[in-house]
Design a protein around this nucleic acid. Structure first.
Length: 477
RNA sequence: GGGAGUGUAGCUCAGUCGGUAGAGCAACGGCCUUUUAAGCCGUAGGUCUUGGGUUCGAGUCCCAACACUCUCACCA
């Protein structure tokens, strides 16, 4: 136990000696700090107020103590005086930074004009036994901020603000989809076959069935089974798990929204994407622009829609139909393309040359069909898939296509996939083929990476700043 | 997994050429009834991430380990 903790334990003992319970229970009548400030009317001495929160600043000037309380809404000052508190003054003198208290009394202003509760009653609700971070700089150590988010949240108000915005954005999305008749559903997180994406899954084990299960890498194949079942408009907001490296843009568990709409296609999903994201920008980002690292993202509609092949020509300088030119470009970029399919080579060049240029919201459309085993091919050009990805700030934010609903074609695509990836854990999902044989309505499907969307909309350049508890190695004991 | 960087008081950070550890905040004692990162006087606080090595002497130089950050690889 540190010296500081011992000192605080000592105060705890003195509080108990006063007959005060240092860990209170239900506290009645507290109002949000910002609401109290909002309703304050100057020169009206009949106003009472009651507020509960954590002590984040404390100024003891003898027989008067000023305390800044922080609650869910913001901060409010309380003035604790010997004269008004009477017997409770002994407790007031023992309060320290980090303690959670309730304070009630007359609402007024100080000489300098700050709205203040002049407390005639103070209640200790929870004693803080560990020293809080420095009051001005807050908590800066990144490791500690992520490991002890519970401290980060109250020591750094902008952190709390960002997570509130995250919640509000997700709510906006939910409400908008509900208003359009979409049903929110939940599909398995633990799957016997990890399908719907090409990624390494996490493996776990069910004891009584004695079977290995995979944490899902995507809900896609289950959501499309629901289309077969007649749920024509569904969406799911939930975690996906991919056993891959960590980076500023990747956390092993991340939140996706997947949306499926029967009788739609990828063009309708493109409109829906633009509509959803724009609504979030409008409601949660002042102006139509967001600062993101060195960039300023302009969300003014309409967003650019550019063909994959056009972008490859524009930034990569090669024609996607001239496979030798594409291979030459790949070699220039240091890619060993000798064992790769044409489409994979093109995608290497695309990732190396195009993506870094996609700052403003850009829909990339018409991907090579070979890269898209779950997408329908374009009628006028079977080499292309009816698919788009949305890029913002160099990041892939959304992925969508007109869903493939031809069971024979899907079966063939699965077989091709299995041949190509021998060491992959992918298995043939024959039940999904069976579902398609019953008939899936034509549909558009869309996935949006929620964490990345929140990053872009709140200007967070690392995914760890939008995930409350990002994955870290366990701390040393 | 590769490369680069960081690790000093509870927190935020200094620490020169290798010469024996510093500030602010927080804490502790005192003064103070209108403060705003309150102020003033005083006190205490350190296995310099860990383990080796070089040296008369290491926070500082070398090696290794651990953690974090950035980056690359992986990543529909």
């Amino acid at each position: 136990m540190s010296k500081f903790e011992r000192q605080r334990q000592e105060k705890l003992s003195r509080i108990k000696e006063l007959g005060i319970e240092p860990y209170g229970s239900r506290y009645e009548g507290a109002e949000a700090a910002e609401d109290i400030k909002q309703r304050f009317i100057d020169d009206d001495e009949t106003q009472q107020a009651n507020c509960a929160g954590r002590i984040v600043l404390l100024r003891d000037i003898g027989k008067l103590i000023f305390i800044t309380l922080r609650d869910r809404s913001g901060t409010l000052q309380a003035g604790l005086s010997k004269k008004l508190l009477g017997k409770q003054w002994e407790l007031a003198k023992l309060l320290e930074l980090g303690d959670t208290i309730g304070a009630s009394g007359q609402l007024g202003k100080t000489r300098t004009g700050e709205i203040t509760i002049w407390a005639d009653s103070v209640t200790l609700l929870s004693k803080c036994l560990l020293p809080p971070p420095e009051k001005f700089h807050g908590l800066a150590d990144l490791d500690q901020r992520y490991r002890q988010r519970y401290v980060d949240l109250w020591a750094n108000p902008e952190v709390m603000e960002r997570f509130k915005t995250r919640s509000a954005i997700v709510k906006t999305i939910r409400e908008h989809l509900a208003s359009k008749g979409f049903l929110e559903v939940e599909t398995p997180m633990m799957q016997a076959i990890a399908g719907g994406a090409a990624a390494k899954p996490f493996v776990t084990h069910h004891n009584s069935l004695d079977m290995d299960l995979y944490l899902r890498i995507s809900p896609e194949l289950f959501l499309k089974r629901l289309l077969v079942g007649g749920l024509e408009r569904v969406f799911e907001i939930n975690r996906n798990f991919r056993n891959e490296g960590l980076s500023r843009r990747h956390n092993p568990e991340f939140t996706m929204i997947e949306i499926y709409q029967a009788y739609a296609d990828y063009n309708i999903m493109m409109d829906l994407t633009e509509e959803l994201v724009s609504l979030c920008v409008q409601k949660h980002c002042p102006g139509n622009k967001v600062e993101f690292g060195e960039f300023e993202i302009d969300f003014t509609r309409p967003w650019r829609r550019a063909k994959y092949g056009e972008l490859l020509k524009e930034h990569g300088g090669c024609d996607i139909d001239d496979t030798e030119a594409v291979r030459e470009k790949a070699r220039q970029l240091g890619v060993d393309e000798s064992q790769m399919d044409d489409a994979v080579v093109a995608n290497e060049v695309f990732e190396a040359t195009v993506e870094e240029n996609l700052i403003a919201p850009t829909f990339v459309i018409d991907y090579p069909a070979a890269l898209c085993p779950l997408a329908r091919r374009k009628k006028d050009n079977p080499q292309l898939a009816a698919r788009f990805e949305l890029f913002i700030a160099r990041m892939e934010l959304a992925n969508a296509y007109t869903e493939l609903n031809d069971p024979a074609q899907q079966h063939e695509n699965f077989l091709t996939q299995l041949r190509g990836e021998e060491e992959s854990l992918t298995k043939m999902d024959s039940d999904y083929i069976t579902a398609l044989k019953y008939g899936m309505p034509p549909a558009g499907g869309l996935g949006i990476g929620i964490d990345r969307l929140i990053m872009v909309l709140t200007g967070a350049v690392t995914i760890r700043d939008v995930v409350l508890f990002p994955l870290l190695r366990p701390a040393r004991s």
